[in-house]
Design a protein around this nucleic acid. Structure first.
Length: 102
DNA sequence: ACGGTGACTAACC
DNA sequence: CGGTTAGCCACCG
């Protein structure tokens, strides 16, 4: 069990708020909860990701989570996320799909 | 308390 | 565009 406003719970809350077809970078999620720990956000997703829309959290480069590119791109494509061709298959058009929680 | 560890990032080359 | 490097941060043993 965890306290409602600890790091993990905050990250989970933000990730759950990302609408289909939109994305946030690890850094965006961290910033949204007043942190700069992009890596720490990755750590939370690595552990609790299975219960969350983890594919909507991508790297600042527009590429999906390291080690999960294939499945993430598939899911992103299904929900109509703006993608652009890239050397490594495809990457998200951050300028069009980036989401900022209010 | 401390050091190692990552689903990270910006800056350089 | 690809490889390297130094920061960054929460978590765990």
């Amino acid at each position: 069990m965890r306290h409602p406003d600890d790091f993990v719970s905050r990250v989970i809350g933000v990730v759950e708020s990302i609408p289909p077809g939109r994305v946030m970078t690890y850094g965006d999620v961290a910033a949204a909860i007043g942190s700069r720990g992009a890596r720490a956000v990755g750590g939370v997703l690595a552990h609790y990701g299975s219960t969350l829309p983890w594919w909507r959290v991508i790297r600042a480069s527009g590429h999906p989570a390291a080690g999960h590119e294939a499945e993430a791109l598939e899911r992103l494509r299904v929900e109509g996320t703006p993608l652009a061709p890239s050397s490594r298959g495809a990457r998200v058009r951050l300028d069009a799909a980036r989401y900022t929680p209010e």
